[in-house]
Structures are given as C-alpha cells and as structure tokens.
Design a protein around this nucleic acid. Structure first.
Lengths: 216, 216
DNA sequence: ATCAAGTTTGACCATCCAGTCAAGAAGCTT
DNA sequence: AAGCTTCTTGACTGGATGGTCAAACTTGAT
C-alpha cells in the first residue's frame, strides 16, 4: 500500500529532489552566502539565525522555509566546501615536473586563501572544534587522497627528483602556510597595517621557500 | 565623606587585591584549567558555564563565586596567555648567530605547540573571530615587538648573514608552521593515525626547511 | 481575471543559558 | 565549643535563541 500523498506542501529544503524555482535558487544562494559570512567568523554555536537572517535581508522564518534547520544550512556549506577542498591536491600530476607540480599546488592553495577566505575559516573553525561534522570525510576521502599523494612525493624523493623530506609534513606545511593568510588575516592586518592585502608578498616568499626546500 | 564599608562580603573575583586563601587559589586554578579546555575547543560563545563547571567538578554558582562572569574567566585566560605568548620572540637575541637564533625561536614555538596546545587553540579561536578581545594587545604590544624583530631580521639579511627574505613573512611562517600542529591536531591525527603524536617528525622537517630557507 | 501553488512574516513556544539569591555546610580562630 | 568567615548549592529569573504555525501576500499558469 503506497503512502498517501500529503496535502501539505513539503518544505523545499527537505529531501525532495524536485526542480527548484528561480526564487528558490536565488534565496538559497543568498542564505548560504550570508550563513558563510556568519559561521566563518563566529563558528557554529556563535552564529545565530537572526544574524544570518539580517545578513541575508530575510526574516528568520523565511530562512527556515528554505532550510530545515540551522544545522542543515551549516551542513550544506560544508558539503559544498568539500567538493572544492580536495581539488588543488587532486590536480598534483604524477607525470609533471616534481618541483613545478608542488609549486603549482602551493600557488593554487594560496589562491584559494585569497578567493575563499571565508571557506578557509569555516574549515578552520570546524577542525579547531575537533572536526565533529567532518570526521568521516577526513578519515576517508581526505586521508586516502593525502596517502596517495604522499606516496607520489615519496617516490619523487626516492628518485632524487626533490629533496628527501617527509611527504606528510610537506603537505601539512603547504596547508599551514597558505591557509594562515586567510585564517589569521585579522592578526596580519593589525600587524602590517589594515591597508595592505593579507597575502601581499606571500607568493614571492613562498616561492622562495619551496624552491629552496625542494631542490634535491 | 568616605563610602561606608559594606557588610556584605565581596566576591573574591572582584577588583579586590587582598590575599587569597588556599581554597581560593586552588579552585581558581581548577576553574581556569577547565575553562581553558572548554573555551579552546568550543570558542567563547560555544562554551557554557555548565560545561566548565562539570569539567571543573564544581557547581555553576560556585564558579560565579570565584569569577564575576563567564567573560571574566575568559579575560583572565587571555591575560595570562599574553604574558607567555610574546616570550619566545622576545628572546630572539640580536647578538647571537642569526641562523641559530631563528632556528631556536622556531624550536621554542614548536615546543609551545607541544606543551600548550589548548592555549594555541584559544588564541586561534580569538583571531578567527576577528580578535575582538585582543585587538588592543595585537595593535600595540605584539605589533611593536614584531616590528622590532623584523628590523633585526632585515638587518641580518642586509648584512648577508641570512637569505634576503621578507622578515614579516618569515615570522608569520614560523607562527603558522608551528601552531598548525596544535590548532589542526585533530585533522593531523585523523590523517596520520591517532596513535602518533601530532608533532612527530615535525622538528626534523622544520629544521631542514629553515636551514635551507635561511642560508644566505 | 482567477485560483492554486509558492512565498513571507508576526506572534508565539520551549529550551537553553548566564547570572542571582538565600540558606546551609565547612573552615578558621579563639 | 562558640562564633565568625568563607565556601557551596538548589532553586530561581530574565533574556536569548532555534524552531513552529496560521494567516496573509505574491506569482504564474490558464
């Protein structure tokens, strides 16, 4: 016996896969952008639906018409982030020139800190809190990718094509040095003066650093 | 006309400077330790007094007998942190051997990530949120110290005693690379396996990195 | 123009949470 | 032991906050 069709309209944020109207597409994007702004600076608990609603220019009940809950908004942001978070490392090409490949990876990560600082801070907030909502992703997808690329780096080192350094620490160093310019941007601005862009001079510095570090 | 002495006992957490009893000293330390644990993983807004009270093994009203407010506990933690946060950089000795001095600074910072990871995360949380409670400190004390030491590093570079690199980015890189092992410890543990210590192998890697980076 | 579906919101509720208070328990001093 | 101070806590309050709901408004297909 099939479940009877409910006369009540489903919430668009629910599991429904039906196509979305223009208004829905637009407002969901507006909400996610506002939520990214608020979550990335205040963390999940520190953010309130009222803040997000104000930032989005919508009413709080309207937010909850588009998403089932505060948690659902946050989950959607993280899900979208994961899609793009692995890409720069994934692009590390085993058939390319080792040094150039690693430098290019570093540059892609630095570019992400410039283009998506809020996403970087959202991620940092999540890890700081013990990665409660990303543990599965990190232990499976991210770990597998890192293991794979670490093997590649190790092979390059063994073949004498780059210096003999620990591949995991090499990857961590790229994450650390590039994301720092997004995550600690307020500190950098306060020290260097608020006029400058946080990554000013970073690319030259990091290129210098990695070309010296990697030379066999 | 002098203000009349109130018959009500002042709260010990207040501005009073009178000496504190053994019980007060002990419980204030217990509370601060518990609060550091909770604030460093959940941030200020994410932490609750009940969590801190449970962690401390005390009742919530008892917490507020020793500190005026949640904010006062947090402020005290930050105040104590600032005292020790500048020390490693302050110890950079203008009369020492440039490379050895910078390596020693890096090692001191790495040691702080090992010994005080919670303090590092407390600091990171604060910066991520725009440093609302540390702006004055960063703009004055920290900035002055960084400017002073950047000048020293620049002088060393100009004299050809270390490589010609941007001194600010050099300092940022040390902060970034060392604190990463504290702030992103959960991620590192999930990738490398929870058995290992997060900083395992870090010292060798960073020594290799900075000896290559700094060589003139 | 009509009307059903989709969208918006004011008013509301339940829960959580920082902080209060008065009364009692434990320590200290004599 | 008495009496004072310090310490502890159960019960409470007021405000914030995530979430609900029914009614009103808008949109778009016919």
């Amino acid at each position: 016996m099939p479940a009877p069709r409910l006369p009540i309209a489903e919430k668009p944020g629910s599991a429904r896969k039906a196509p979305r109207s223009r208004i829905q597409k637009r407002n969901r994007e507006i909400i996610l952008d506002a939520a990214l702004e608020v979550f990335s600076t205040h963390g999940f608990r520190g953010a309130t639906l009222d803040q997000i609603a104000t930032q989005a220019g919508l009413s709080k009940p309207n937010l909850l018409y588009y998403f089932d809950s505060k948690d659902a908004i946050h989950r959607e942001l993280l899900t979208r982030l994961l899609d793009t978070w692995l890409d720069p490392l994934r692009m590390l090409n085993p058939d390319g020139a080792p040094q150039a490949e690693i430098m290019a990876y570093m540059r892609r990560k630095l570019q992400m800190s410039r283009d998506f600082p809020r996403e970087s801070r959202l991620f940092a907030n999540e890890i700081l809190q013990g990665a409660p909502r990303m543990e599965a992703f990190i232990r499976t997808d991210l770990r597998a990718l890192v293991d794979e690329k670490a093997q590649l780096l190790q092979a390059w080192a063994d073949a004498g094509r780059i210096a003999r350094i620990d591949p995991y620490h090499l990857i961590f160093s790229i994450w650390s040095l590039t994301q720092h310019y997004a995550d600690f941007a307020p500190q950098i601005a306060m020290i260097r003066g608020d006029r400058h862009e946080p990554t000013e001079g970073a690319e030259e510095f990091l290129e210098h650093l990695y070309s010296r570090l990697l030379a066999p």
